[in-house]
Design a protein around this nucleic acid. Structure first.
Lengths: 137, 137, 137, 137
DNA sequence: GTGGTCTAGACCACC
DNA sequence: GTGGTCTAGACCACG
């Protein structure tokens, strides 16, 4: 799995990690039973504070996505996949609703918004295709 | 103009005010030369601290959207409309891009995203219609 | 005498008026004994608040530049010319010192500052010449 | 870097700080990536309120001169140097123009103004030399 | 009455 | 520890 963080986008780093794990589990990139990197190791890789990784893992344990295996590390919970998929859907719906509300509250007509959205998605779709041709996951 | 703030949505109050003014100017609800409510008056209306309003107005002055008229109040700058419209467009595009990226990075296929988006917009559109039947601006 | 004010340059209006009178007296444009416009009249001309004119005149009386003549208006004090010239010199020296200090404190070498100053003065000088050809006082 | 403020010169403290940082960056005294003192620390040093420092830093972030590094402090933006140099030049030119205009509007002949300016600069230059002999930056 | 600035103290999230 | 936001209350200058 490829870990990435963006220190400049306002979203707390630990939260980026939490979502990244949830999404990876939802997509099957991380499978139940699989051991995730140790906090120290991952912190080193991403050049961030170990406390930050610790906080992310800790939240994921509360969410029953990860579970500590004494002495061996931290692993993905069995059965986490389905739950993560549900959570992903809820979360994305919320996010979409937010920006739709903002746009409408800002005076954009629904059709203008549709057009704007389609333009953005199309662009990303194109990039995605090119990207997957070059590399893949 | 209708002023509203939501103290619980994470976005700083002063920032909500800044955006609200920018959008209102972009939509022509506030027109150049018009005097906006005094800091104290608006603070009273919204039940927030005058300093918070002051900060919002202050930032809007930096952005050349508002200008103080000494002793008389604060007014919308001439020529602010066009600039606010441009700014609104940029800002909304950024926001849409963010959530599109999040969705795609979360493993949603473009078509699934389109469907999700359309569902949300349709719902809001319906509410909007009912709302405008009842009240209007 | 030509009265002008600039509501947007940060300098309080009443202060602009005070300086304008002082300078006019120093240059002989206003002579001792001459009656200045009534507060209401001047306020009307400049489209400002009569209180503002009143405040300016009041300060000028404290400075012994103007004196009220009961029933006839406000006049330039006898002997105000010399005093205003002295005051003008002091005041301008202070102002020049201020910006010189700012420039040096900002890291500009004296010679760079000299060059900048000369450029600005030369430009103004040129404008002044053209201006006096067209109109004059 | 040496921080100084003058609470009695009419210029708001936060603005003095803003300019001081801009000039220091322009001169290379503060370099991109460098961490500036924490708001609390600087406030303590200068014996002012932390909010005042906060406001200065906040404005400098809007100007893209400083950027917050979450949990670690506030740093000079990469690329801020060139921008600050440009800004400094514009700002100083404006200031010089102001006093030149005032002087000319006050009836001073260009050559009288030149003489006044030269006298002031020469005096400051002399002080500067003595000062740098004693101390240095 | 208006805006502008500053102080004081509190709370929060992040690292 | 850091920055960020908000509240409360005071003072000043301007019109």
């Amino acid at each position: 799995m490829r870990w990435t963080i963006d220190a400049d986008n306002g979203v707390p780093i630990f939260e980026q990690l939490v979502r990244q794990v949830q999404f990876a589990v939802a997509r099957g990139i991380l499978v139940p039973g699989q051991i995730v990197p140790s906090t120290r190791e991952l912190a080193r890789q991403l050049a961030i504070n170990p406390n930050t990784v610790q906080r992310a893992y800790s939240e994921l344990q509360n969410l029953q996505v990860l579970e500590p295996l004494r002495g061996r590390g931290v692993a993905v919970c069995p059965g986490a996949a389905r739950q993560c998929q549900a959570e992903r859907k809820v979360w994305l719906t919320e996010r979409v609703q937010q920006v739709v509300d903002e746009a409408i509250q800002g005076g954009l007509a629904p059709d203008e918004l549709r057009e704007l959205f389609e333009r953005v998605v199309a662009r990303r779709e194109k990039q995605q295709v090119q990207h997957s041709k070059r590399g893949g996951e």
